[in-house]
């Protein structure tokens, strides 16, 4: 389209720029503020006298002798053993992603290629399962898990997270497989491959973009989960998010909220890096389900 068409009135331009600026500040500033504040002492981050103290760090100067302090991080990671929670998170998230993707690619491929009525019913069922609030499912697990001594262990949580994320994974991979032309695997089968061989040798090499995107989202689902990890893990096996939630109760009374602030910043950092590197995949993943309905 020509340039004349795109010309906007100055008023409209100002409105648009204003709107976008307000949104950028609303979306980005809280994170910047918390990151900056996590290197201050509580008296500055929650300043009773003047909020600009959080920027200049007046009390931090007085209490520690420098404008920045790593005390919050030391307290969280070392004193409160946040490193253990981080380790548990890594174990859980990595395993969940690998298992989810293995089950999901097989199932998603079958759903995309079947074309039968029952495949559609299964997809609908997965949609209903996707809508179940996780806490309702958890209240179904707890009693049996207590009885069979499965409660509190990492493997139990991993299996539960894989299962809970399966409906989403199936939907997403199903829509990615629909994009891979049918002729590809069908011609392999005409050449004498079985269905599984066709999948293994023809589909697997070309499916990686879809799998990477879905993997990102299963990573986020496992990493961001609070409901399952908070209720199914024992104190010793806690992951980062329930650990932060438990900080809230203890640190508020002990007067070291800054531990929680430091922990929050630490848990946000990996997500930040993730968006930095995979922004394109996240955007395409969000729209994949939508554009195809």
């Amino acid at each position: 389209m020509s340039d004349i068409v795109h010309r906007r009135s100055p008023v409209l331009n100002i409105v648009i720029w204003g709107l976008v600026m307000v949104w950028i500040v609303a979306a980005g500033f809280p994170f910047l503020w918390t990151l900056w504040g996590s290197f201050k002492v509580q008296g500055d981050f929650f300043s009773k006298s003047d909020w600009t103290n959080a920027i200049s760090g007046v009390r931090t100067q007085i209490e520690t002798g420098a404008a920045f302090t790593g005390k919050g991080y030391y307290g969280a990671w070392v004193t409160k053993e946040f490193w253990l929670a981080a380790l548990n998170t890594v174990v859980i998230v990595v395993t969940v992603v690998i298992i989810s993707l293995t089950l999901g690619t097989l199932g998603g491929y079958a759903l995309a290629r079947s074309g039968k009525k029952y495949a559609f019913y299964l997809l609908m069922l997965a949609l209903v399962f996707r809508a179940m609030p996780h806490i309702t499912l958890v209240s179904g697990y707890l009693l049996p898990f207590f009885e069979w001594n499965l409660w509190g262990h990492l493997p139990t949580t991993i299996v539960v997270l894989v299962a809970i994320n399966q409906p989403f994974t199936l939907w997403m991979l199903h829509s990615f497989f629909l994009n891979i032309p049918k002729d590809l695997d069908e011609s392999a089968m005409v050449d004498g491959c079985t269905r599984f061989q066709a999948f293994r040798h023809v589909i697997v090499p070309v499916m990686w973009p879809g799998v990477v995107t879905t993997g990102l989202f299963s990573f986020l689902l496992a990493y961001n989960d609070f409901t399952v990890t908070a209720t199914l893990l024992s104190q010793a096996n806690q992951t980062m998010i329930p650990k932060i939630a438990s900080f809230l109760g203890t640190t508020q009374t002990e007067g070291n909220v800054m531990f929680a602030v430091a922990a929050v910043v630490s848990a946000t950092a990996p997500l930040f890096v993730l968006i930095l590197f995979f922004q394109r995949q996240i955007v395409s993943g969000l729209t994949a389900g939508a554009v195809k309905g």
């Binding site: 097989l106 199932g107 079958a110 179940m132 499912l137 009693l143 399966q166 269905r195």
Partner: peptide, 29 residues
Amino acid sequence: MKNHTFFWFILPSLFAMTLFIALPIISVA
């Protein structure tokens, strides 16, 4: 896709969903 091939492909995923989504709903009830 043949019915039985479909079944084997979907089985692991379906098994996980039955065990940890469908059964818990019954267990909750």
